[in-house]
Computed example of a mutant assay.
Amino acid sequence: MTTPLTNYDLPAWETLPAMPIYMDQLLALVNQQLTALALPLVTKTMVNSYVKQHFFSRPTGRRYTRNHVVAVLIVSLLKTDFKLETISRAILAIRESREIEVRYQQFRLALAATLAQRAVPRATDQLGQAIQFAAQTVGAHLLTTRALS
């Protein structure tokens, strides 16, 4: 059974694993979120492909960090509505900003507000606004899909 969208919220940054985790743990964490939204699950092959496409760095010793978890989760959400080239540009901009936690929080809050059909307070910077628009797009897609099913 899927989660009511009005109650859905991505995990807070602080609740994501602080210690590196293995691939199976990463998949379990991400797929739990995707299942709640009735989205396709992520596989090992997909994660390896994301590494090859430079969406994020290679794991160290086959262990993935919190940043990896966030990247896989966000790519999985965005790819329902955006081309991989667009996602790649967004990920690169976020990495260059060196504010992964802040940018994840912006996405998380904008997605939750959109799903709850509340207004999203506008970010003041261009990257923040782009992140919010992307989250709103994903949220609107999910709401539309649910309304039509």
Score class of each variant (00 low, 15 high):
Thr2Arg: 14
Thr3Lys: 10
Leu5Asn: 01
Leu5Cys: 04
Asn7Trp: 09
Pro11Leu: 00
Pro11Gln: 06
Ala12His: 13
Glu14Asn: 03
Leu16Arg: 06
Leu16Glu: 04
Leu16Met: 13
Leu16Pro: 02
Leu16Thr: 00
Pro17Trp: 11
Pro17Ala: 09
Ala18Thr: 12
Ala18Cys: 05
Met19Trp: 10
Met19Arg: 14
Met19His: 08
Pro20Asn: 10
Ile21Arg: 10
Tyr22Pro: 05
Tyr22Trp: 11
Met23Ile: 08
Met23Ala: 05
Asp24His: 09
Leu26Ile: 06
Leu26Val: 08
Leu27Trp: 07
Leu29Tyr: 15
Val30Ser: 04
Gln32Thr: 11
Gln33Tyr: 09
Ala36Gln: 12
Leu41Thr: 13
Val42Trp: 08
Thr43Cys: 01
Lys44Arg: 12
Thr45Asp: 04
Thr45Met: 03
Met46Trp: 07
Val47Arg: 05
Val47Lys: 07
Asn48Pro: 04
Asn48Ile: 11
Asn48Met: 06
Tyr50Cys: 02
Val51Ser: 02
Val51Leu: 04
Val51Glu: 05
Gln53Ile: 05
Gln53Lys: 14
His54Asp: 13
Ser57Leu: 14
Ser57Asn: 15
Ser57Gln: 10
Arg58Leu: 13
Pro59His: 11
Pro59Asp: 10
Thr60Ser: 11
Gly61Leu: 02
Arg62Asp: 12
Arg62His: 14
Arg63Glu: 14
Arg63Cys: 06
Thr65Val: 05
Thr65Asp: 00
Arg66His: 01
Asn67Lys: 02
His68Asn: 05
His68Ser: 06
Val70Ile: 03
Val70Thr: 02
Val72Met: 13
Val72Lys: 13
Leu73Ser: 09
Ile74Gly: 05
Ile74Trp: 02
Val75Ile: 07
Leu77Lys: 01
Asp81Val: 13
Phe82Cys: 00
Phe82Met: 03
Lys83Val: 07
Lys83Tyr: 14
Glu85Phe: 08
Glu85Val: 02
Thr86Ile: 12
Thr86Asn: 10
Ile87Leu: 00
Ile87His: 00
Ser88Pro: 06
Ser88Ala: 11
Arg89Glu: 03
Ala90Asp: 05
Ile91His: 12
Ala93Ser: 11
Ala93Lys: 07
Ala93Gln: 03
Ala93Thr: 07
Arg95Lys: 15
Arg95Ala: 09
Glu96Trp: 04
Glu96Cys: 08
Arg98Gly: 06
Gln106Trp: 10
Gln106Arg: 04
Gln106Ser: 09
Phe107Gly: 01
Arg108Tyr: 03
Arg108Asn: 02
Leu109Asn: 08
Ala110Glu: 01
Ala110Gln: 04
Ala110Arg: 01
Ala112Val: 11
Leu115Thr: 06
Ala116Cys: 00
Ala116Gln: 04
Val120Arg: 06
Val120Thr: 11
Arg122Asp: 11
Arg122Ile: 12
Arg122His: 09
Ala123Gln: 04
Thr124Ile: 15
Gln126Asn: 02
Leu127Trp: 01
Gln129Leu: 13
Gln129Ile: 15
Ala130Gly: 08
Ile131Tyr: 02
Thr137Ala: 14
Val138Trp: 12
Ala140Val: 15
Ala140Cys: 15
Thr145Cys: 10
Thr145Leu: 10
Arg146Val: 15
Arg146Lys: 12
Arg146Ala: 08
Arg146Ser: 06
Ala147His: 08
Leu148His: 10
Ser149Gln: 15
